[in-house]
Deep mutational scan, measured.
Amino acid sequence: MATKAVCVLKGDGPVQGIINFEQKESNGPVKVWGSIKGLTEGLHGFHVHEFGDNTAGCTSAGPHFNPLSRKHGGPKDEERHVGDLGNVTADKDGVADVSIEDSVISLSGDHCIIGRTLVVHEKADDLGKGGNEESTKTGNAGSRLACGVIGIAQ
């Protein structure tokens, strides 16, 4: 089992970053940390998408990683996509320092995120509470600013 993974985020604009993942036990939580720069100040949706395909930019990554066919939600919700990591918060300089621990994603097994795409979005994720159909699919997080395929790390 891989215990570490990394993702280099890039987009068409100024947004870029490096996100690290570490899972010490196969059924334990995954620590997610790193930094994203070039964002507007505020909240930005942060999700693992189904495919590791960036051939047409971030759009070819498909929908959120959702092997259990659930509705979109927040990272602490029972009803959520596996890939729903909530929001990252950018400061006035456009930098989001990421520090998350998640017990639904994994670096092995059915919820493995390796080979899938991590995406940072234009807007805040409403965590499935926006009151419309799009909220239950995407959290109304808007366009995909930057993305990268999650790969095994040393």
Results as ranks from 00 to 15, higher is better:
residue 65 F to H: 08
residue 124 A to N: 14
residue 94 G to T: 09
residue 39 L to M: 06
residue 118 L to A: 10
residue 145 L to T: 13
residue 63 P to Y: 15
residue 38 G to V: 08
residue 107 L to G: 04
residue 16 Q to Y: 09
residue 19 I to W: 00
residue 132 N to E: 10
residue 65 F to L: 14
residue 34 G to V: 09
residue 73 G to F: 03
residue 99 S to H: 08
residue 90 A to F: 05
residue 65 F to V: 03
residue 88 V to R: 06
residue 141 A to D: 02
residue 51 F to Q: 03
residue 100 I to G: 11
residue 8 V to A: 10
residue 127 L to V: 13
residue 129 K to C: 10
residue 106 S to Q: 14
residue 56 A to V: 09
residue 63 P to K: 04
residue 89 T to M: 15
residue 35 S to C: 11
residue 40 T to K: 14
residue 93 D to P: 10
residue 44 H to M: 13
residue 108 S to M: 04
residue 94 G to K: 11
residue 127 L to A: 09
residue 7 C to A: 05
residue 45 G to D: 02
residue 127 L to C: 09
residue 103 S to Y: 14
residue 78 E to P: 14
residue 134 E to D: 08
residue 136 T to R: 09
residue 113 I to R: 02
residue 128 G to C: 07
residue 99 S to Q: 04
residue 113 I to S: 06
residue 42 G to D: 05
residue 56 A to L: 11
residue 95 V to C: 11
residue 89 T to D: 14
residue 63 P to N: 09
residue 129 K to Y: 06
residue 132 N to Q: 10
residue 98 V to L: 10
residue 16 Q to D: 08
residue 87 N to Q: 05
residue 19 I to G: 00
residue 6 V to W: 00
residue 127 L to N: 07
residue 98 V to D: 04
residue 63 P to D: 05
residue 24 K to R: 12
residue 8 V to N: 11
residue 132 N to S: 14
residue 141 A to P: 03
residue 20 N to H: 07
residue 86 G to V: 00
residue 76 K to S: 14
residue 66 N to D: 13
residue 66 N to K: 04
residue 111 H to V: 14
residue 142 G to D: 05
residue 37 K to S: 12
residue 93 D to K: 14
residue 6 V to E: 07
residue 102 D to K: 04
residue 102 D to P: 13
residue 106 S to A: 11
residue 68 L to K: 15
residue 45 G to L: 00
residue 44 H to V: 04
residue 143 S to A: 06
residue 71 K to M: 14
residue 14 P to V: 09
residue 131 G to A: 09
residue 103 S to F: 15
residue 116 R to F: 00
residue 135 S to R: 00
residue 60 S to R: 02
residue 23 Q to H: 04
residue 33 W to V: 10
residue 88 V to E: 05
residue 120 V to D: 00
residue 127 L to E: 14
residue 101 E to I: 10
residue 11 G to T: 10
residue 119 V to F: 00
residue 149 V to G: 04
residue 80 R to P: 00
residue 136 T to G: 08
residue 47 H to L: 02
residue 105 I to V: 12
residue 105 I to T: 05
residue 86 G to C: 03
residue 87 N to A: 05
residue 8 V to D: 14
residue 7 C to E: 02
residue 49 H to L: 00
residue 78 E to Y: 13
residue 86 G to Q: 05
residue 50 E to K: 03
residue 146 A to R: 03
residue 74 G to M: 11
residue 82 V to G: 09
residue 152 I to V: 05
residue 34 G to H: 01
residue 11 G to K: 12
residue 91 D to P: 15
residue 37 K to T: 09
residue 25 E to L: 04
residue 36 I to A: 11
residue 11 G to H: 09
residue 132 N to K: 13
residue 96 A to R: 06
residue 69 S to C: 15
residue 19 I to Q: 03
residue 96 A to I: 07
residue 60 S to Q: 04
residue 32 V to R: 02
residue 89 T to E: 15
residue 89 T to H: 14
residue 113 I to T: 10
residue 100 I to F: 14
residue 47 H to Q: 03
residue 86 G to P: 06
residue 91 D to H: 12
residue 47 H to R: 02
residue 3 T to E: 08
residue 91 D to T: 12
residue 50 E to A: 12
residue 50 E to G: 05
residue 17 G to Y: 14
residue 35 S to Y: 11
residue 19 I to P: 01
residue 54 N to W: 10
residue 70 R to H: 11
residue 29 P to Y: 06
residue 147 C to A: 02
residue 147 C to W: 02
residue 13 G to M: 07
residue 80 R to N: 05
residue 43 L to D: 09
residue 8 V to L: 05
residue 30 V to P: 05
residue 73 G to A: 08
residue 122 E to C: 10
residue 78 E to M: 13
residue 126 D to N: 04
residue 91 D to G: 09
residue 31 K to Y: 09
residue 40 T to G: 06
residue 25 E to M: 05
residue 90 A to M: 08
residue 111 H to D: 11
residue 40 T to L: 11
